[in-house]
């Protein structure tokens, strides 16, 4: 198995932060932590070349570094591409993720990298790229390299990769079907017994936690603010121009309400399979209160009503998807100079 390895300027032995602008360089054989990785790799495997690039250069010239890495991986006829470990280094993690994703799609060979869970590269690339959980301390180098070597070998040999908890990589957010000996009822009873006895047990579904965020304050008075209406109740113009589905929506829409004193039954419909739409269909203001907002606009209670409302279908939506939709909506609202939002949920 031929391996090509990617390192930043620090681990590649070029130098510290003052060398972060160094353009990519290809070196024969293993370098730095690659020397240890080379020993750990299964017999018959070796690192045939190492790409070393400065962190700033890689982040600022992503197209360049991606082309460079893709070319070298092809020339070397690599069977596996490894980047890092990057630990907590943010630019390193972002670059490692980018080159891994590029090699995977361009050369169709397995790729592995390693970062700490806090590395921003994790959020961006965890779904596409296997990222070994390196923790934040380079003192764990050997252990991290062992897991990289194991995973790399399995991937290259088309062996089944186990779950994150046993293989030591960061969960990618996939559910995989697997056969188990015990029924759900048996496993549930065992978990309950363990809990009663005060013993430890592993939930089978990760428990989602929500970090409270600080309350953002209004920067203008309500009487001067531009306020937008947003809904997850699936209200769309008749004929549903963006094809919002009735569940599992990955899309959202922005619809003009400019000069409308209220929303009329004949202009709108509801794309949402999670509640009885009849009452909202009959009077869409029951979901998106344009009528009342217009009155408040006229009376001066609010500055203005934003000229469009945003809508998606909040039905059986995975959390990550809803978050992405929220981020995309926020960007559009910010660009439009919206000061505050009233979000209506069914």
């Amino acid at each position: 198995m031929k391996v090509v390895h990617y390192l930043n300027q620090f681990f590649g032995g070029v130098g510290g932060e003052e060398f972060a602008d160094t353009p990519p360089n290809f070196l024969e054989g293993p370098v730095g932590p690659g020397k240890l990785l080379n020993q750990i790799l299964p017999e018959g495997s070796q690192i045939v070349g190492t790409i070393v690039c400065g962190d700033n250069y890689a982040v600022e010239n992503q197209q360049d570094i991606v082309s460079f890495v893709n070319a070298k991986v092809k020339e070397a006829r690599a069977d596996l591409f490894v980047a890092g470990p990057c630990f907590n280094a943010g630019r390193y993690g972002m670059s490692a993720g980018a080159v891994c994703e590029a090699v995977k799609s361009e050369s169709d060979i397995p790729v592995v990298t390693a970062m700490s869970e806090e590395n921003p590269g994790v959020d961006v690339y965890r779904g596409e790229v296997l990222i070994v959980d390196s923790g934040s301390s380079p003192a764990n180098m050997r252990d991290v390299l062992v897991r990289i070597a194991n995973l790399g070998a399995k991937l290259a040999n088309d062996e089944t990769v186990g779950p994150p908890s046993t293989e030591g990589y960061i969960p990618q957010g996939f559910l995989r079907t697997e056969f188990v000996e015990k029924t759900a009822a048996q496993r549930l009873a065992e978990m309950l017994m363990a809990k009663l006895k005060g013993e430890s047990f592993e939930p089978e579904i990760p428990v989602t936690t929500f970090e409270p965020i600080p309350v953002p304050l209004m920067t203008t008075e309500i009487a001067k603010a531009k306020i937008a209406l947003v809904t997850d109740g699936g209200l769309v113009p008749r004929s549903n121009p963006d094809n919002l589905p009735r569940a599992f929506s990955r899309v959202w829409g922005a619809y003009s309400i400019d000069e409308r004193p209220k929303l009329l039954e004949e202009d709108f419909e509801v794309a949402h399979g999670g509640y009885d739409n009849a009452h909202v269909q009959q009077d869409p203001n029951r979901l998106v209160p344009v009528d009342v907002m217009r009155e408040m606009e006229r009376s001066g209670a609010i500055g203005s009503l934003h000229e469009e409302f945003l809508s998606t279908t909040g039905n059986s939506n995975p959390l990550e998807n809803s978050r992405r939709i929220g981020r995309e909506m926020a960007q559009r609202l910010k660009e439009a100079g919206v000061d505050a939002v009233i979000l209506t949920s069914t």
Binding site: R323, L333, D339, I342
Partner: peptide, 23 residues
């Protein structure tokens, strides 16, 4: 969606019958 908008600095008031979920 609410929290992502608030992270972006836009205050959001959420009207929902399911207040516990929102909380």
């Amino acid at each position: 969606m609410t929290t992502e908008m608030e992270k972006a600095g836009i205050p959001v008031a959420q009207v929902t019958p399911m207040t516990l979920v929102a909380e």
